[in-house]
């Protein structure tokens, strides 16, 4: 980990101005990220995905992003020009989304899409881009990279599609990868494989990773540090290995309410939500 943080977020707010009034989806989130794995956990509506999107400048239209500070490697993302943002996005910051079915272009082969992603951010010849794309497909453990290269997204399984997506996102050697529920649409055994690949690549390349998920257990077993979000705020930040010592009742409740193979609790403890948590 370097001394200078890769990403600094201070008092990030995402507001949606709707007919019925203003809704604040993210309400004052602050954190810094080095070259480490940071997990953001929360239930639906906690603002975890909007936090990831706001960093990339992908907040959907009626939304407005406000922050005291939002810098990536010293570049202010709030005041940066569209051009700068475009080169950063997909170049130095990448994002892997939940379902490869919706994030891959259905009418382009997987190989073409990786080449396009690479050429958009580097000045390189086609042959070089092709080599790089094949190398990347190999890096995500595709059994036959040359074959996958010429396949269309609908011709591959969900797990392969997500690997192709990761290959595409990592081809530009980004410094920061934001993964929003990258394995939620996949089977458990496949998702473990994907996580292993992601884990290796992140470690190998020394990237920063923001892993957004609803699955507290998964995030804590994968990341170094975990932010627990509730109603748009971070209610607790803790080292993943210290999860058992979580202080906040919400984190504790989230952990306890899952049924486990190890012990049979019946009835399962449910979460009584305290309005004070959202304050």
């Amino acid at each position: 980990m370097t001394t200078k943080p890769l990403l600094e977020v201070e008092d990030l707010r995402v507001r949606f101005h709707l007919r019925t009034g203003t809704v604040e989806a993210v309400r004052g989130v602050s954190f810094t990220l080095g070259r480490e794995r940071l997990g953001i956990v929360g239930e639906s509506g906690s603002g975890k995905s909007q936090t990831g999107r706001a960093i990339l400048g992908l907040t959907p239209p009626p939304g407005e992003v406000i922050a005291k500070k939002l810098t990536f490697d010293g570049i202010d993302l709030l005041t940066a020009s569209k051009r700068t943002l475009r080169t950063l996005r997909g170049g130095r910051i990448s994002m892997v989304m939940q379902d490869p079915k919706y994030s891959l272009n259905p009418v382009m082969t997987i190989g073409e899409q990786i080449i396009e992603a690479y050429q958009a951010h580097t000045r390189s010849g086609r042959a070089e881009a092709r080599d790089k794309a094949l190398a990347m497909l190999e890096a995500v453990k595709m059994r036959d990279p040359a074959r996958v290269f010429s396949l269309y997204p609908h011709e591959v399984s969900g797990g392969m599609g997500q690997r192709a997506m990761i290959a595409m996102m990592l081809v530009t050697d980004p410094d920061l990868l934001i993964a929003d529920e990258p394995t939620s649409a996949l089977d458990v055994t496949v998702s473990m494989e994907i996580l292993r690949i992601l884990d290796e690549l992140v470690a190998e390349r020394g990237m920063g990773l923001i892993f957004i998920s609803h699955d507290l257990k998964l995030v804590s077993s994968f990341c170094d540090r975990v932010l627990v979000m509730y109603a748009g705020r971070v209610v607790e930040e803790l080292e993943a290995k210290n999860l058992r010592e979580a202080k906040h009742p919400y984190t504790q409740g989230l952990m306890r309410c899952l049924p486990t193979l190890a012990n049979d609790v019946r009835p399962l403890p449910t979460l009584s939500r305290d309005p004070a948590w959202a304050q």
Binding site: D199, L216, K217, S220, S221, K241, A262
Partner: peptide
């Protein structure tokens, strides 16, 4: 393998705390 996968991600197969949360 299903049981293992349900225990969460583990860098090395036998991580003690992985049995904790589920």
């Amino acid at each position: 393998s299903l049981i293992n996968a349900s225990q969460g991600f583990s860098r090395d197969a036998a991580r003690p705390e992985s049995a904790l949360t589920r």
